[in-house]
Design a protein around this nucleic acid. Structure first.
Ligand code: SF4
Ligand code: SF4
Lengths: 132, 132
DNA sequence: TCTAATTACTACTAAAAAGTAGTATTTGAA
DNA sequence: TTCAAATACTACTTTTTAGTAGTAATTAGA
């Protein structure tokens, strides 16, 4: 696996919110639309809210929405869901420093740069879904 | 995380074997040199052997070695350790087909190609570790 | 033949991730 | 004011992954 189930849920949720900027999306709607276990989803949503990645409105007719002014990168999402992973090297746990490179460094170099540049640093709102 | 602990162990082990092609490496040596729990390591090694990714010699003075004739890609290792992941799309679990692309497809496109081409398809033996 | 060092096998435990249950709190509208 | 529908909170269960324990089988060499 590359991204955890939680991260994948998160990506789906935020993409959905991004496509429904007018008004609020309830956890029920998100759960049904995105096929994510309701209770698990609410757990994630609360975490997002606490970390000020999204806004929540409580009470009846409440729900969630993106914060317009806020730029969220995919790296932000990863940090929040998978913890402190996705650091510089994504292989990780293999000892290395400037002097000593692991066996895979060169092969990993290009993908690594591409992930960082084209994906992790990408603003969520800049990603556009297509249907054709 | 990007690769599971098991996969990371596997990558380290195979890299080590690749750098010690003469003779056999015992589980004890591998465990100590690579700082991998002995019992966990032997479990992995047996699996590799069964899947004919490496050769084992039992009994005293036994150990493990790569099979010279065999090409092992990083994708092979992933398949064996993480199960059926690392399929075409590494985000996975997000529904898509040729008509409907998920929100992240374009941003993911380049990293995805790079991972596949430069890393997953790379022959283990072609990766070279450096010390300077 | 015996032994010590090794891999192979079976089964268990611990930790982490994913998922579930129940209740409390909030809040707009009837 | 009451109520229904929503988020927030606390705690638990299940599943998966990581790690451990003990023993059997193998084998080169003394
Ligand atoms: S040497 Fe390169 S690929 Fe290997 S662990 Fe370090 S940064 Fe990652
Ligand atoms: S649309 Fe592209 S990025 Fe999204 S799940 Fe499908 S292949 Fe992966």
């Amino acid at each position: 696996m590359v991204f955890s189930t939680t991260t994948q849920y998160a990506l789906k949720i935020l993409a959905y919110l991004n496509e429904h900027k007018e008004g609020l999306c309830s956890a029920k709607t998100l759960s049904e639309e995105l096929d994510i276990p309701y209770k698990y989803l609410t757990k994630i949503m609360t975490k997002f809210t606490k970390n000020e990645m999204i806004e929540s409105v409580q009470g009846r007719y409440g729900g969630f929405k993106l914060i317009d002014s806020k730029i969220i990168t995919i790296y932000d999402i990863l940090k929040l869901c998978d913890g402190d992973s996705a650091k510089d090297c994504i292989i990780g746990k293999i000892e290395c420093n400037e002097r000593k490179r692991c066996h895979y460094h060169d092969a990993w170099q290009k993908p690594r740069e591409s992930i960082k540049k084209d994906f992790l640093d990408a603003d969520l709102k800049g990603c556009i879904s297509k249907e054709s």
